[in-house]
């Protein structure tokens, strides 16, 4: 039940990211130059008239003054499903406020979901596959293989990845879009990032290997690979799923750190990470707390991933037990 709810949330997020041109009220890069840092506006559904209330979705227009934003008193109708948009206003309307360049934060969040939702999954999957593979082999077979793989992980864990990225950034052609650049970076990061995870898996696998049902499986004539996949790896899945879901936000947030090097998603392209980075300033946070909105989306998406991961694990374990 919980998993279904989480799945629905993820589907909604993913769908709106895919259909961003329709779902988002504005383009992610359109600058309403006279509306920088506008506060969020509410959609009012009913309008007070002489005869009571009538149904007429609208927002109240705002205008910038030296003292801040003020309502002008004008009422702007909000149309649903017209002009190829899910939602369109007759005057600039910012449901989650606007950023300092006057761009609609809601629209940027919707477009930003394209990057932020996909990139974490890609990174985490590569890390998990490599980690399970190398950790599993090392722990299962032991000996020289174990030794070599473990020393390799130590090398990978010690490399200064900052400089690795910097050196590689020279090779990346400047013509690539920021999403392509970032995908390359994620691939690199996950190819060097599996080491720690693999070490833990290796320890677990080494101890599971001698347990009764593994010995039984081997005695019954099952091959090593089959035993590894059917009887050993499933026991590490609880740990794997937690680590995987925990690492998704690391990729989403890490992206904003990478933009310090010019390797993240760059202006004017939005991502949840780089939008949140703008809010991490005490004066900005106090003056316009709504710039934290992308953070709420990150938390929402990650919790959804986590819930789904947990139930996935539960069903896998049940299946394993059932056989």
């Amino acid at each position: 039940m919980k998993a279904k709810g989480a799945l629905i949330i993820l589907i909604i997020l993913a769908f709106s990211a895919l259909a961003a041109p329709i779902v988002a009220p504005y383009s992610y890069k359109h600058q309403f130059r006279s509306y920088p840092a506008a506060p969020p506006m509410r959609i009012h559904f009913f309008l007070k008239t002489d005869g009571g209330y009538t149904f007429r979705p609208h927002v109240r227009e705002i205008q910038r003054t030296p003292e801040g934003y003020r309502e002008t008193g004008r009422i702007c109708n909000v149309h649903l499903l017209s002009r190829g948009k899910l939602l369109s206003c007759e005057c600039p309307c910012f449901l989650l406020g606007s950023d300092s360049l006057g761009r609609d934060i809601l629209s940027r969040i919707i477009y930003g979901g394209r990057i932020s939702l996909s990139i974490g999954i890609v990174g985490v999957c590569i890390t998990a596959v490599l980690g399970l593979l190398f950790g599993g082999i090392a722990g299962y077979f032991g000996g020289l293989v174990d030794m070599l793989i473990m020393r390799l992980t130590e090398v990978l864990m010690s490399l200064p990845s900052f400089f690795l990225l910097l050196s590689l950034s020279v090779v990346i052609p400047p013509g690539l879009s920021s999403a392509q650049t970032f995908l390359i970076i994620v691939l690199i990061l996950s190819f060097i990032g599996w080491a720690g995870f693999a070490r833990v898996i290796r320890g677990m696998v080494a101890s599971i290997r001698t347990s009764d049902h593994v010995v039984a499986s081997l005695a019954m004539g099952a091959g090593h690979i089959r035993t590894l996949i059917r009887h050993v790896i499933p026991l590490t899945l609880g740990y794997t799923v937690v680590v995987m879901t925990l690492n998704i936000p690391a990729y989403i947030l890490g992206e904003s750190a990478l933009s310090m090097l010019g390797l993240g998603i760059r202006e004017p392209d939005p991502s949840w990470g780089n939008m949140l980075a703008e809010a991490l300033n005490i004066s900005i946070l106090a003056d316009r707390p709504w710039t934290l909105a992308p953070g709420a989306f990150i938390v929402l998406a990650v919790i959804a991933f986590n819930v789904i991961g947990e139930s996935l694990r539960a069903s896998l374990v049940v299946k394993e037990k059932g056989q």
């Binding site: 890069k29 010019g262 202006e267 004017p268």
Partner: peptide
Amino acid sequence: LCSIIMDDLTKLGMKVNFRPLD
């Protein structure tokens, strides 16, 4: 500033590829 410049020059019809570098 680059975001605004890019927007302004795009309106003029110039294709600007923006890239921050370390």
